[in-house]
């Protein structure tokens, strides 16, 4: 599967990682090498083999529906990132996390 820089940019956008043209080109070379390695899999006939997601064949354990968590907002918001753009204030107000306006 040959990748193009356009593909790199598309994947980078899906991943929310900014890449400029130079980075995209450099990434393309390395990713192509890695994908070449991955391509070895295609030679294997896997017809009828069940995919393996977990190494142990066990089922999900269930948790009792009991409140075990307390309010730790203060501690959690103490590590909020800075607002940026010249402000070193934490990006929180009135207990809410602040982000640039979400447009619906």
């Amino acid at each position: 599967m040959a990748l193009s820089t356009e593909d790199i940019k598309k994947i980078a956008h899906l991943s929310r990682i900014e890449v400029d043209d130079n980075e995209a080109a450099a990434t393309l070379t390395k990713l192509s090498g890695i994908l070449g390695l991955i391509e070895q899999m295609q030679a294997v006939d896997t017809t009828g083999i069940a995919p393996m997601s977990h190494s142990q064949d066990i089922s999900q354990r269930l948790r009792n529906d009991v409140v075990t968590k307390t309010n730790e907002r203060e501690a959690f918001q103490a590590i909020a990132p800075h607002l940026g753009n010249g402000s070193t204030e934490p990006a929180v107000a009135n207990g809410l996390y602040l982000v640039p306006k979400v447009i619906e």
């Binding site: 607002l83 940026g84 753009n85 010249g86 204030e89 107000a93 809410l96 602040l98 982000v99 306006k101």
Partner: peptide, 19 residues
């Protein structure tokens, strides 16, 4: 608290969403 920040448009005070 956003007063001290110097925003480039379109991010301005009032242009924030709380989560």
């Amino acid at each position: 608290k956003l007063d001290e920040a110097k925003w480039d448009e379109p991010v301005t005070k009032g242009n924030f969403t709380g989560i």
